[in-house]
Design a protein around this nucleic acid. Sequence first.
DNA 1: CGTAACATGTAACGCGTTACATGATTGG
DNA 2: CCAATCATGTAACGCGTTACATGTTACG
Lengths: 181, 181
Amino acid sequence: MDLSPTAYVILGMVSSEPRSGYEIKAAVDNSVRIFWAASYGQIYPELKRLSEAGLVEGSDVPRGERKRTVYAITEDGEAELVAWLRQPPETAEMREEGLLKLFFSGLLPPEEAATTLRSMRAHRLELVARLREMESEASKKGPFSLMVLQGGIEYNEWFADWCERMETRLLGPAWPPERSK
Amino acid sequence: MDLSPTAYVILGMVSSEPRSGYEIKAAVDNSVRIFWAASYGQIYPELKRLSEAGLVEGSDVPRGERKRTVYAITEDGEAELVAWLRQPPETAEMREEGLLKLFFSGLLPPEEAATTLRSMRAHRLELVARLREMESEASKKGPFSLMVLQGGIEYNEWFADWCERMETRLLGPAWPPERSK
DNA sequence: CGTAACATGTAACGCGTTACATGATTGG
DNA sequence: CCAATCATGTAACGCGTTACATGTTACG
């Protein structure tokens, strides 16, 4: 059975406790979103598919008058999830418009290329701040949750630092460097 | 005028010298691909659109009997490209299946979670090796080309190192850590 | 002589986002 | 009472990949 990666996110999110579509989205948003996002447009249809495939099971658990369906993982679902966890990861991609701009920045004076680096740095620092706020929450959820979050923090700090170093280089007297044959 | 980011990649790639669709693809593949890919399925139709919009201009430059159209950037195209370069970058995303697996690795014994980290590390190290081979080429193309490539190398090295550290932590005696209330 | 590289394109498909629609409940 | 949050869904759209189709040329 071949599921989309997003299906596994959902499976993972309901593996610890039953959750509604809405709650799955919220859980994704404050944990894995930095390296794997999911929108309602994916979650609800996927939940239906997973339910038909018998990997999750929905039950009506209204809160007051407001109807609400929470999904729990089934045994088949957990087997599927664990099998996926054991496979070596495949997808690993990145889209960084800032680096793209930097790459073509020979068309601009160095000060303007430096502006791009400053934007990138500011963006990364904001992210770090937001992630730091989530740290205590994550530590309650378990060691892997915290590990991954701290990885995200470290990564963004590294990136911010790199931007700073490149900016310094760009504005220093040795720029642009001579190209040696 | 609002173009897709990929349109700007193309514009950037023909800004220094006229190139065919095939050459654009090749240029992307050995420079920005690590953080921004492009396939023929995008390049050729986009080239047609850019041509109709007057941002690039194609001319037939056959090599022998083999027909070949190279595209050069126009003044409008360059203005458009430079205007884009001056805007702060927007898109910055990442999809890391490995981190996703790690996040859910509470369902596995620590040794198996460590396997995921080892795969991730191996993948990053391979990438570093491939990027290092491109270094001398990139230095000929200009300082920004080299800067961005070295950034990619440093990033992947950081990532590989992080994986190693996390693996050590995972296999150490202090795992799983107690969660303090 | 065969295969890798050069060269151009398109159609189908998959995945994901955005925007929209609808309505209940909670808290200030 | 109003806004935010809870809750569920869908339709349209955009972007990008994969696979296919076709043919040439250089090189070993």
